[in-house]
């Protein structure tokens, strides 16, 4: 199927992009296009205008500033995958990115696009939750920062409003006690996960503190498992696994039943907890 007709505008600047978006309520931002274009090709998405931000080179940089690593919205997955700064300062991302789709998709797909789309089974939203990242949004009223915990609102729903452009992601540089874990279960390499888990914590005494467990593929959005986090902080893995029954509300679909997802979430928690432990 071919897309329905739409107009195309190439943004010359961020202000230009925002002005274009302002002028057409059903306009969509075209970044990497790796999720948007399939939706266009199925006529599931029929915007009147695409605002192409790929020319905004200032959004394509990875930089370190003020105790943060900042990843521009247009940074491609492949670029992040190869980035030594990310490997050093946000190793959770380096661990997660190879699970995103396939090489040709990672060459084109962007960090910002993945976050802005907020697919419930995607890796990066969960990683941002686990890392406590800040998401920078630029709109007609200026620039604001939204905590990852506040950003993902529901199924493909985010804190982005009309006319907003996601411009960057900021992640605090971790201390030496920080630990990370990541695992996902996908039927085939590169598929969206049946269940995935991105996790972070801090070694504290003999155990873990500040545990953040972000599951994906088991709800309408990437989700923190807060009771399980508390149980893990108190050193009780079995209780953490049991707590997932309260924390998560997995769904059934053609790929797995809710019961399977629920079971797999527990399996992943044990595996990821071992990663957090083994890296102490």
């Amino acid at each position: 199927m071919k897309p329905a007709p739409f107009a195309y505008a190439k943004a010359r600047s961020l202000d230009h992009a925002i002005a274009l978006l302002d002028g057409a309520p059903d306009a969509r931002v075209l970044a990497g296009g790796q999720s948007l274009v399939p939706a266009l090709n199925m006529r599931l998405s029929t915007p009147s205008l695409l605002v192409d931000i790929n020319g905004l080179r200032e959004l394509g940089e990875i930089s370190r500033r003020n105790g943060h690593i900042e990843i521009g919205a247009l940074v491609r997955h492949a670029q992040a995958e190869r980035s030594s700064a990310i490997a050093q300062l946000a190793p959770l991302l380096t661990q997660a990115i190879p699970h995103i789709a396939h090489p040709a998709i990672r060459n084109r797909g962007t960090f910002g696009g993945s976050i802005a789309l907020a697919d419930p089974a995607a890796e990066l939203p969960a990683c941002l939750l686990a890392l406590g990242a800040e998401i920078e949004v630029t709109g007609r009223t200026g620039r604001r920062s939204v905590a990852a915990d506040e950003f993902f609102k529901g199924l493909f729903e985010t804190a982005l409003g009309p006319g907003d452009v996601l411009t960057a992601i900021r992640i605090a540089v971790p201390g030496s006690a920080a630990r990370f874990g990541f695992a996902e279960l996908a039927r085939r390499h590169g598929d969206y996960a049946l269940v995935g888990l991105a996790a972070a914590g801090t070694v504290h005494g003999g155990g873990l503190a500040d545990v953040r467990l972000a599951f994906f593929g088991v709800g309408d959005r990437a989700t923190r498992a807060r009771q399980a986090e508390a149980a893990l902080e108190s050193g009780n893995l079995d209780a953490a696994v049991a707590a997932l029954q309260h924390d998560l509300s997995p769904h059934s679909d053609v790929h797995a039943s809710a019961a399977t997802r629920s079971h797999l979430a527990g399996v992943l928690l044990r595996r990821v907890a071992a990663q957090l432990d083994s890296s102490t």
């Binding site: 279960l185 039927r187 049946l194 790929h255 797995a256 039943s257 019961a259 399977t260 629920s262 079971h263 797999l264």
Partner: peptide
């Protein structure tokens, strides 16, 4: 033989 099928056979779900 999906994970659903195998886990059911193992009585895990």
């Amino acid at each position: 033989m999906t994970p659903d099928v195998v886990l059911r056979a193992l009585n895990k779900i």
